[in-house]
Design a protein around this nucleic acid. Structure first.
Lengths: 130, 130
DNA sequence: TTAATAATAAGAATGATTATTATTATTAAA
DNA sequence: TTTAATAATAATAATCATTCTTATTATTAA
């Protein structure tokens, strides 16, 4: 999963974390992932989940999401996309961004700055909470 | 500064915090504000800065910014605007958004969701760090 | 001017995350 | 394969921004 030039050996735990993140759209927290893996890896530690999540983020396999709460969420979808955060239940869902959308087109004073990435996040009330 | 119907009394400390935030574009942290006020309010506590910042955010006088670092920043500018975060020096600068820009126009699957607000943030390298 | 109550300072508590350390697993060379 | 080198792990301590608690002080309104 990581390239040959990676400074990291492969680990079953890290591969499982990536598998979980790629298999869900729920944007789980470190603790949720930890609990989900406990059965298969009885002596897994939460610290190791964090450590491997950091490696996955560093190697661009996974994205760390931070919407202003006290904890982070993680996303196995590295395609450019947006999120909708429900202010009532806290759920996070994916929103597709039109492929031709370039947010810099709508920004006035970005001259001199070298933009590498952007985030576009929406807040409101989701279908279930209305 | 707060409306008559507010449940909060006015306080000199909170008025000063608002004044500081309205007088800068540096998006300071709670601790920076605390240090800046220490001379004028020798027995100010950091906890009280946090408490008043929370009140200011709750009453929509101020915006709390969270870009994924371990601490938050605060913004006295409540107009809709965007930020550029330098990944090297950590500085945060304002970007103006075109007034006709409606981000929902570029989102595909938001049906059923009631969008209240959005954030558009850019990451990269600033003028000074290039 | 006094009673009610909000704001405060000080510092303890919280909680997500990171760091440390001793142990275990994996790799690669002999 | 053995074995030496080193990375990954589990356990747990440490960190650090933020929030909470409590006793005290300031402000308000009757």
């Amino acid at each position: 999963m990581l390239t040959d030039t990676s400074k990291y050996r492969k680990s079953r735990q890290r591969e499982r974390i990536l598998e979980i993140l790629r298999g869900t759209k729920s944007h789980p927290t470190a603790d949720t992932i930890y609990l989900e893996m406990k059965d298969e890896f009885p002596d897994l530690s939460l610290g190791n989940v964090y450590r491997n999540l950091n490696i996955l983020v560093e190697t661009n396999m996974v994205k760390r999401l931070d919407f202003g709460s006290t904890f982070n969420r993680y996303d196995g979808n590295c395609e450019t996309h947006s999120h909708f955060i429900c202010e009532k239940c806290g759920s996070v869902s994916d929103l597709e961004i039109n492929e031709n959308f370039n947010p810099e087109d709508f920004i006035k004073n970005s001259k001199g700055k070298s933009v590498k990435s952007f985030t576009l996040e929406f807040f409101g009330i989701c279908e279930n909470c209305r």
